[in-house]
Structure formats: C-alpha cells, structure tokens
Amino acid sequence: MKINQFPESLDLSIDDLLIIWDTSTGTTKKISAASLLDWLSANIKVASNISGIGTATASSSFNASFLPIKATDGSTATDWASLNQTNPWIQIDFSSSKKVSQVKIADRIGQSARCNAGTLSFSDGSSVAVTGILNNGTYSIVEFATKTITWVRFTVTAGTGTNVGLSEFQIIGY
C-alpha cells in the first residue's frame, strides 16, 4: 500500500504543472497551477459578511447620523437607531440571490433603548427567532441551514425604550 504525503503548503508559480487524479475517469491529468487557481476561485466559496453589498432600509431612522447603513459598516462604534420606535425593523436587500447560513446581530452599546429579541425573516418565506441579545458589544450569532435569499429582515419583538436600533446587522454568506 502506498500512502501519499502532502506538505502543509505548496509554493507554486503560475507556470507549474500539477498531476492530479481525475476521479471521474480514474486517470491522472496534468493541469497548470493557473488552471487550478481558476477552478478554485470559480468553485470554492468562502462565506463572509455580505451586508455591505446590499441595500439597507429600516422602518425609520432617528436622524441622518443613525441611518440603517450604519448597522452594515462592520463597526460596533456606529449605530442605526429608529425614531420613537420600540419594535422597529431593518432589512438588507441584495440585487441577486445570495446563499446565507448565519446572521450576527449587535445591539447598540450601553443604550437604555434596547433590542432584547426579534425575528429574522427571509425572502424564501422562512423565519428564525432571535433571543438573548446583549447591549455590550457582543454579537448574537444565529446559525441556520443554508438559505438562498434576496433579502433578510430583522424585526425587533422585545424592545425596551424608544429609538431602538442596532450597532451591527451582519449577513454571513456569498
């Protein structure tokens, strides 16, 4: 029995040739490192925060300093805040379908207006309850089976105070 050992990393130049095993034909093939990179970039997707490539809207905004886009900028130092609402909503719309499997929510840090719980609603008709949201800068991470969607909305269902909002609303997908 022969066991192939692979290094932890490979240093390849674009012109290098690789010999790979083609499982569909049961034979070896020679391919260039460039072809392998092209195939990897076309077929391997890495999930990341895609909120920033969508359009953020909300039920209201306190003023121009607290727009919904502030909840998609990757910083818990900026906030979206509603205008006199205890149970507002925020939504991210995408121009094309996205595959998502996680949402991260961070309440506004140290504010008396709090988002304690809510519901995530998706364009595919599904929804997920979210509870236990803290207002100390920690993310509440909501994981679910991968969905193909064009929008996601978070509706606060247990707000306290007025001007409830979020510091971050991150959609993780590709």
Rank of each mutant, 00 (worst) to 15 (best):
Q85S: 11
Q85R: 11
P88H: 01
P88E: 01
W89L: 00
W89C: 01
I90M: 07
Q91P: 07
I92H: 08
I92A: 03
I92P: 02
D93I: 06
D93C: 05
D93V: 07
F94I: 12
S95M: 12
K98D: 06
K98W: 06
V100T: 08
Q102R: 15
I105T: 06
I105R: 06
A106C: 09
A106M: 10
D107V: 04
D107F: 04
R108S: 05
R108N: 09
I109D: 07
I109V: 13
G110H: 04
Q111E: 13
Q111P: 04
Q111D: 14
A113F: 00
A113V: 04
R114F: 03
R114T: 15
C115F: 15
C115V: 04
C115S: 09
N116S: 10
N116M: 07
G118S: 12
G118M: 10
T119Y: 01
L120D: 09
L120S: 12
L120T: 03
S121V: 03
S121H: 06
S121I: 03
S121N: 14
F122R: 08
F122S: 13
F122Q: 11
S123M: 14
S123P: 05
S123H: 11
G125P: 07
G125F: 06
S126L: 11
S127H: 06
V128T: 15
V128L: 07
V128M: 13
V128D: 11
A129W: 00
A129Y: 00
V130A: 09
T131P: 01
T131W: 01
G132L: 08
I133V: 15
I133F: 02
I133E: 00
L134Q: 07
N136P: 00
N136K: 08
N136W: 10
G137V: 06
G137H: 12
T138A: 10
T138Q: 10
T138N: 09
Y139P: 00
Y139C: 03
S140W: 01
S140M: 10
I141F: 04
I141Y: 03
E143P: 00
F144A: 02
F144Q: 12
A145S: 12
T146S: 09
T148C: 08
I149D: 10
T150P: 04
T150V: 14
W151S: 14
R153I: 00
R153K: 13
F154I: 03
F154N: 01
F154H: 05
T155D: 12
V156D: 02
T157G: 04
T157R: 07
A158W: 00
A158S: 15
A158H: 01
G159K: 00
T160F: 02
T162V: 14
T162R: 14
T162A: 09
N163R: 11
N163H: 14
V164C: 03
G165H: 10
G165R: 08
L166A: 13
L166Y: 05
S167T: 13
S167W: 00
E168A: 15
Q170P: 02
I171C: 02
I171L: 14
I172V: 12
I172M: 13
